[in-house]
């Protein structure tokens, strides 16, 4: 299990940042998804031992994070959202320094730093001071710093924030490459649904300091019944009426021969065939469309709040 939470609470003065956060999450790439202020960064900092929870228990890779944060940090890499840099050091020196802070010898740290900078695609600019870097270059350095000590799990806090589309694509490709290769497991904290959909296999949805959903993306999307696209040969209104009689929600937008059908709970496509038989219509094509992550996300947030 990558992460396990049990009744985790954290307050900052009057603000309740985390309220009884509970859940378990596993997978090669996990999205920590939620709007700004949902408590994602607070939860990650508690996992790292950078913040102490007011109550509850946090386990990272099976280690109690509140009792032994140093053991957790040995197995965990973290790329913070903020600047988090040491002015005056070059990109290469920053990554090598991060490796040395994790206990690597200087020579090994430098070799590993070069390797990681190659991986994230930072070329000869690695020798320039970090304060001269663009946002994209800086994000790459932070990812390299998080990976340099070969952790089992990497936490990336909003890694695509402030990036132009090309840089964002490249960074997301890198995350996919890590997920599919021999890289560490990844926890990607973001408020961007698209980033999670593209890179992750599991997701933990947070809102206002609570967990709304924790599980695989597939399971999240199949929780919604989805929609059927029905192409009919003859007039659309007759079949639409028959479907509505049976409790389905029918949309008639788009092409004149196409119906968007959302079935009532606990029914399946047989209901559509029955309606077509009753109305005397011929179905040319019947296709099930899965709910988008956005729809599933909105539903997950809405159904429990």
């Amino acid at each position: 299990m990558l992460l396990a939470f049990s009744d985790v609470q954290k307050r900052f003065g009057a603000t309740h940042a985390l309220r009884d956060v509970s859940g378990q999450i596993d997978g090669r790439a996990v999205g920590l998804l939620g709007p700004n202020g949902a408590g994602k960064t607070t939860l990650m900092k508690i996992c790292l031992g950078l913040l102490a929870p007011d109550g509850g228990r946090v386990e990272v890779l099976g280690i109690d994070a509140t009792r032994d944060p140093t053991a957790v940090r040995l197995k965990l890499g973290y790329a913070a959202e903020g600047p988090g840099r040491i002015p005056g050091l070059s990109g290469l020196e920053s990554v090598a320094y991060a490796a040395e802070l994790c206990g690597l010898r200087r020579r090994k740290a430098l070799l590993r730093a070069h390797e990681m900078l190659d991986l994230v695609g930072l070329d000869e600019s690695r020798h320039r001071p970090v304060e001269t870097y663009s946002t994209g270059m800086h994000q790459r350095v932070k990812v390299a710093m998080a990976l340099v000590h070969d952790p089992q799990l990497v936490m990336l806090d909003e890694p695509t924030s402030g990036l132009d589309p090309d840089s964002r694509d490249e960074l997301l490709d890198l995350i996919v490459q890590l997920r599919e290769g021999e890289g560490p497991a990844i926890v990607l904290s973001t408020h961007l649904l698209h980033d999670v959909e593209r890179t992750c296999d599991s997701v933990m949805i947070m809102q206002a300091g609570t967990v709304k959903y924790a599980g695989t993306l597939d399971a999240l999307q199949t929780r919604l019944p989805g929609e059927y696209h029905v192409r009919v040969a003859s007039g659309r209104p007759a079949l639409a009426a028959a479907l509505r009689e049976r409790g389905a929600t029918v949309g008639e937008r788009g092409r004149p021969d196409l119906l968007h059908v959302a079935l009532p709970p606990n029914t399946d496509a047989d209901l559509i065939w029955a309606a077509a038989t009753a109305s005397g219509d011929t179905i040319l094509q019947l296709e099930q469309k899965a709910a988008s992550l956005e729809e599933a996300f909105m539903a997950a947030v809405a159904e429990q709040s």
Binding site: L48, G49, L50, A80, I86, A98, L101, C102, M145
Partner: peptide, 18 residues
């Protein structure tokens, strides 16, 4: 002072450092 101003404490203590 520079570490504090640059927000580098997270950089240090997110690693196995006491």
């Amino acid at each position: 002072a520079e570490d504090r101003a640059a927000g580098a404490f997270d950089l240090y203590f997110a690693r196995p450092l006491t």
